[in-house]
Structure formats: C-alpha cells, structure tokens
Computed example of a mutant assay.
Amino acid sequence: MDIALIWPWLLLGLFIFFAFTTEAMTGFGSIVIALSLGALVLPIPEILPVLVPLNIVMSSTLSWRHRHNIHWPTLWKLILPLMVLGTLSGYGLRPWLGDDYLRQGFGLLVLWFSSRELWRMFKGIEVRSHASWWSRCWMFLAGITHGLFASGGPLLVYALSGLQLDKQRFRATLILVWLSLNSLLTVVFLFDGSLLPAAPKIGLLVPVVIAAMLLGEWLHHRVNEERFRQAVFVVLWITGLILMRP
C-alpha cells in the first residue's frame, strides 16, 4: 500500500492516543483534540465516522464506572432535549458546507475555546452562572457544533457554567451526554453509509484508545493537571490558527 495513503492515518492514531489520554486524565477533549490535529492531515468528514465510535468505547466505560454520580434531572430535563435537537440540525447543515468551510469553522471554534480557557487560567477568573434562557440557547448551539464536528463540549461547558453540581456529578453527567449523542451520530453514520467503510480503521484503533485510557488513569495521579491543561490549550490555540487559514 502507498505510504502516502497510510501516513495520515498513522498520524491520526498518534493524535488519538494523545487526545484520549488527555480525556482519561483530565475529563475533557478526546474528540476536539483528535479532530483539531487530525484535520491538519485528513478531511473532517473522513475523520468523524472513526472518532465518534471510538469515543463510545471510552465514554461507555467511564459512564459505567461513574454511574452513581450522574445527575439524571439535569441530563433529561435540561441537556439532552436541546442537544439532540441541535445535533440533528448540525448534521443537516453538513452537506451545505464544503471541507474548507468545515475546517475553518472548526478552527474558529477551537481558537475561541482555547483562548477563553487560557485567559481564564492566566487571570484566575471564576466561572459565573448564566441566565436560564442564555444557557438554553448555548446548549442548542452546542448541539449544532456536535452535529457538525462531534465537538459540542466547548459550548456546552460554557452553557453550563455556574451550574450547582459538584465536580464529580458534573463530569459524570457530561460523559453520559457524549455517550448518548455519539451513539446517535454513529447510527446516523450507519444510515448515511459512512460508518461501514470506516469500520476497519475503527477496529485497528480500539487498542490505541484502551492504551490511552490506561495511561491517562495512571497519569491522573502523577502529573500536575493544571499545567498539563495549559499545555493542551496552547496546542489547541496554535492548531485553531492553522485550521482557520484559507
């Protein structure tokens, strides 16, 4: 097989290992990091049917492990109705956007998210709560970005800023959100014909995800999480700039 065809997927495997290790360690970022870096070497529509099912491997494992911390009222009454509607709307928009617009739009999202987090860290800004209507608008927009890029996390975290949940409940609830929405997207990919061609790559990359989960769990107790998050956001900020180029 032509090495030029294999090389981008080998790089994607490396990006997936880094991204999923980061999520296992810090609780965020598996798809947004892997897609940000992967979009530098492959088209987003080719990557998503691989990344989304792989995320289910991690989110299902973590959801089961932390099932007792899930805050069901927040999930069913607040997040999922708006996120599901937004996700389906975002998926419906994808045919209207070419690869360049998808890449640049995702780059803008990543740049905004990373800039906001780096600024908060630098200034020591506390998270403030939002009005209910404002949070719901951003949840719907988070669903749209999830339908477009399977990366609704940045906007959803912003929408839920100030929510009165402890860290464990917040994280466990969000993990189940991604399991639910990515399961929905996987079914959609099955029906639109993009899942089955990606199945061999998914099978080859499952061990990478498992290894990343194990390493992330080990690093969680040994590495300064705040410093690590800062380094990840710097990488994302640079990547966002590159993705936005014409």
Rank of each mutant, 00 (worst) to 15 (best):
I3M: 09
L5Q: 11
L5P: 02
L10V: 14
I16Q: 04
I16G: 11
F18N: 04
M25T: 14
T26C: 11
G27R: 05
G27L: 00
I31H: 00
V32L: 15
L35I: 13
L40I: 04
L40G: 11
P43H: 06
I44G: 00
I44R: 04
P45W: 02
P49G: 06
P53R: 05
N55T: 12
N55G: 13
I56E: 02
I56S: 06
V57C: 04
V57P: 00
V57G: 04
V57I: 12
S59Y: 03
T61G: 08
L62I: 08
S63T: 11
W64T: 09
R67T: 13
R67G: 02
H68S: 14
H68W: 05
N69T: 08
W72Q: 08
W76L: 12
I79S: 01
L80P: 04
P81A: 05
L82E: 03
M83S: 09
M83Q: 10
G86E: 01
T87D: 05
Y91T: 13
L93F: 15
L97M: 14
D99I: 15
Y101Q: 09
L102A: 06
G105H: 05
L108I: 09
L108A: 15
L109W: 05
L109Y: 01
L111V: 07
L111N: 10
S114V: 03
S114P: 00
S115T: 15
E117T: 14
L118S: 10
L118N: 07
R120A: 15
F122Y: 13
V127T: 15
V127M: 11
H130F: 10
A131L: 14
S132M: 13
W133Q: 06
W133S: 15
W134S: 11
S135E: 06
C137Y: 06
C137K: 06
M139Y: 07
F140D: 00
A142C: 08
A142Y: 04
F149G: 01
P154H: 04
P154T: 07
L155R: 01
V157K: 04
Y158M: 13
A159T: 00
L160N: 01
S161F: 01
G162C: 03
K167Q: 09
R169Y: 03
R169C: 13
A172C: 06
L174Q: 12
L174C: 08
W178I: 02
L184S: 07
T186L: 10
F191H: 13
D192E: 10
S194F: 08
L196Y: 12
P197L: 13
G203T: 09
V209C: 06
I210V: 11
A211M: 03
L214Y: 12
W218G: 07
L219E: 02
L219P: 06
H220F: 13
H221G: 15
R222Y: 05
V223W: 06
E225T: 15
R227K: 13
F233P: 00
V234R: 02
V235T: 08
I238F: 13
I238K: 02
T239K: 08
G240D: 01
L241F: 14
I242R: 15
L243S: 03
